[in-house]
Design a protein around this nucleic acid. Structure first.
Length: 140
DNA sequence: GCCAACGTTGGC
DNA sequence: GCCAACGTTGGC
């Protein structure tokens, strides 16, 4: 299964908001970038992603799961190509993984987070996923 | 089809 | 607050 990374500015939509949304989850809306949209389209129900706080925090704080595959973004104009997936929170990272820690880890040098820092929905490789989960204090 | 101008993102 | 990176827009 593929893994992903979702970026959000915490004052717009934080990990706490995602947790508060509970088991029913919420739509990950507002994506207006075609590369990010393509990633959303590739997602399958049950795939998991990292939840990253940009700007304030600059750290990966939790794990989310795709609970509904891509469908048209209800916040976009009718007919627009934008899509959302529904996400629910799974668990927090006992120890958040900071951007600084990622930069300091040679094995993570190719992460999209570093190479394409403005992309809001990114793929994460299996190796990156395992390493970040471990750095965050989760057994994998 | 090129490219300058402009807006947005996001780290610092 | 600054600025680099990048996407989009619009004139030509």
């Amino acid at each position: 299964m593929a893994h992903w990374l979702f970026k959000s500015e915490p004052f717009k939509w934080s990990w706490q908001d995602q947790v508060a949304a509970g088991e029913r989850g919420t739509a990950w809306d507002g994506v207006r970038n075609h590369a990010a949209k393509l990633n959303l389209l590739k997602m399958a129900v049950g795939e998991r992603g990292l939840f990253y706080h940009s700007n304030e925090g600059k750290e990966i704080v939790g794990i989310v799961e795709v609970i509904r595959a891509a469908y048209p973004d209800p916040t976009a104009e009718p007919g627009a190509p934008w899509v959302v997936v529904d996400l629910k929170s799974v668990e927090p990272l006992p120890q958040p993984v900071t951007l600084a820690a990622i930069k300091a880890t040679p094995a993570l040098a190719d992460m999209a987070l570093l190479k394409y820092s403005r992309l809001s929905v990114q793929p994460v490789s299996d190796a990156e996923w395992v390493l970040i989960c471990r750095m965050g204090g989760l057994a994998v």
